[in-house]
């Protein structure tokens, strides 16, 4: 099975604080991989290191045969790794269509025109099509999350990384987002998901759990679901 991402011995921190310690994992083609853990466990730090928003202290991050460490965020995006950041971070003063348009990378067009790429996103999220002229800042949280995901899909990524996409959404909207993620995975895109919401486990192939920056558990979905640690933290059962 071919890999879309390999993280080896990753350590990172802020000042004296070590946020992530010696984390290793890999994600196969078409897999959904989840990073579990409480707030402050280091999940977001790992995504920020992969995307080039932060420099790790140690380790290697390989995607598409290239070392990502040392690359800038826009170079990582061109290698087919997309990041839907915590808090969505849509361009609030741009319209929905402009948000999508600026996120199209010509080098990753893969034969699509800009128009075709945008229409693919509208097919996935019809709500965005209804709001195409609206400023992103005036939309609901769920719509902004759809746009953030749509924006990340504009460069036809090999790996889509999402940082708590259900945070702040209604249960119905969160359900819709996870249902769309299943469609995206079915299209062959690998997914790296950081989530607090237990629904994400239904989607997962494999994953790991972090506590204070250390990997405390790693395995396939069954192993995660059977773990007492995960059950206590996520499923609300003992």
């Amino acid at each position: 099975m071919s890999e879309v991402l390999r993280v080896e011995g990753l350590s990172a921190g802020y000042g004296d604080l070590i946020a992530v310690h010696d984390v290793s994992f890999s994600i196969g083609q078409g897999d959904v991989f989840v990073l579990l853990g409480a707030n402050g466990a280091g999940k977001t730090t790992i995504l920020r290191c992969i995307t080039g928003l932060m420099s790790p202290r140690q380790g290697r991050i390989i995607a598409g045969g290239a070392e990502l460490i040392g690359k800038k965020a826009h170079e990582v995006a061109k290698l087919g790794v997309s990041h839907v950041p915590e808090g969505r971070r849509v361009f609030t003063h741009l319209s929905v269509e402009e948000n999508l348009g600026v996120s199209f990378i010509d080098a990753r067009a893969k034969g699509r025109t800009l128009r075709q790429a945008i229409d693919e996103i509208y097919a996935l999220f019809p709500r965005l099509s209804e709001r195409r002229k609206q400023h992103a800042g005036t939309m609901s949280g769920g719509e902004q999350q759809m746009l953030a995901i749509g924006r990340a899909l504009m460069n036809a990524p090999d790996l889509l990384m999402l940082d708590e996409p259900s945070l702040g959404l209604s249960p119905l909207m969160a359900e819709l987002v996870f249902e769309r993620l299943a469609v995206i995975r079915a299209g062959g895109t690998s997914i790296l998901l950081v989530e607090q919401n237990s629904s994400c486990l239904e989607l997962a192939d494999r994953g790991l759990m972090l506590a204070n920056g250390h990997v405390v558990l790693a395995g396939d979905r069954a192993a995660l679901e059977d773990s007492d640690m995960v059950r206590r933290a996520y499923l609300g059962t003992n």
């Binding site: 800038k72 990582v76 061109k78 849509v90 361009f91 609030t92 741009l94 402009e98």
Partner: peptide, 24 residues
């Protein structure tokens, strides 16, 4: 223009612009 949209995107959120592939 797409360049103009990119300028406005960078003005809005330079870090988010980077992760969608814009060289801020």
């Amino acid at each position: 223009t797409r360049w103009g949209h990119a300028v406005r995107a960078v003005a809005d959120d330079a870090e988010a612009a980077g992760i969608v592939g814009l060289d801020a």
